[in-house]
Structure formats: C-alpha cells, structure tokens
Amino acid sequence: MQLTDIMPLLQEGTVDTLRMVLISTALGYLVGLPLGVLLTITSKEGITPHPIMYRILDLIINITRSVPFLILLILIQPMTKLIVGKSYGTTATIVPLTVAASPLIARMVESSLKEVDRGVIEAAQSLGASHTTIVCKVLIPEARTSLLVGVTIALGTILGYSAMAGIIGGGGLGDIAIRYGYYRYETGVMIITVVILVLLMQILQWLGMLISGKVDRRRV
C-alpha cells in the first residue's frame, strides 16, 4: 500500500480521533465537573459537609473507575446502541468514552479544588458568600491552573482510550491501526498511526501546559 493511498484515510482518522476526544472530554466535564464540585463541598473538610452524599458519590466513582476501559466498552454496548442507534463508529464511541471520562474528571476536579487554601475559603465565608459564590468565584477560579492541567491529563487519557476503541470498530486512528496494521499486517500503517498519536499527545500536552502557565497569577 502506497503512502498516497492511505493519506486521505489517515487524515480522516485524525479528524475522527480529535472529534471523539474533544467531544467526549467536553461531555465528560459536563458530568465530571459538577460531580467533582459536589465531592469537594460535601467532604468532611468541605463547605457543606454531607457524609452520606459524599460516600455514595465516592462509591459510584470508584466502581466506574475500576472497570477497565476495554470491558466497559463492551459492557455498555447495549446502552450505546440505545442512545446512538449503533454500537460502532466514531459517534457511538463517544458514549463509552464519556462514561469513562466522567469519573476520572470528577476525581481530578476534586483534587484540584482541594488544593485551594482553606483560609481563602474562610475569608469568603466571613464576607457572607453563599455556597454558589464560593464555588464559582473562589474554588474554581483559584484552582484554575490545576484544573487546566487536569484538562490536559483528561484529553491525553481519552486519546489513549479512543485508540483502544478501535478493537470494536470505534473509528479514528486506533481503528485504522488495528484494521490495517494488525489484521492486514501493514506494519507501516500501524507505525504511522502511532506516530500521529504521539504527535497529538505532544501537542495537547504542550498546549495545556502553556495555557495553564499563562493564566497563573501566583508567580511574580
């Protein structure tokens, strides 16, 4: 197979991969960010401790996180079918990716928010700030550098997962690597897809660090 033949294929694969990764990470934050906030504020040291709620969320997140992604992929296929209409292709893969991303993101958000200085939160409380104000104007903005590092890690992890989804025809670069590289013994194609994946990871990491550094005002 000539390089010119697979170029359009690789291009399409890269776009598909990016689409899957970006959409599922975004959806993951839609679920994971509120969960992470809830975990933080309901914990024992949080602004509104709620042991029962905390324990339930904690348990759900631990369970979903302990299922290996490959198993999760297969396990929730019926649900994927129900939502998307089919269980293969890039759009379908967004479902398991989001399910895997959400608890991971919740944990990372929790750990970022917990870094916020207790004294600053106390200062906000002493000024009469509501819980919503403390979350929106203290916790999240003060933790923004750490939160953005979290986004970078989440994107990287989901990128890895998305390639794994190739095994069940998940679309994108991982799919190409498995179909051409593994099933058809086209090692060249496999190597190229891996190189593209490495490059994507590098770019994400570099961008993430650049942005999180730029928004940090704690450095002179």
Binding site: D117, G119, V120, E122, A123, A124, S126, L127, G128, A129, S130, T133, K137, V138, P141, E142, R144, V215, D216, R217, R218
Partner: peptide, 26 residues
C-alpha cells in the same frame, strides 16, 4: 462583620482591585 487574617487570605488569582470588589459582588 468583616474579618482579617494572619495569612491575609486574598484571592491569589484576582487583582488587588478585584479582591476589594469581592464583598461588593457578594
């Protein structure tokens, strides 16, 4: 009842002016 602290407890990601704005926003 305002309060000031040993470690100042300012919002580190906000400018000085926006720190003073905080109670007014509340």
């Amino acid at each position: 009842i305002a309060m000031i602290f040993q470690q100042f407890n300012l919002l580190m990601q906000r400018t000085v002016l926006d720190n003073v704005c905080f109670p007014l926003e509340i």
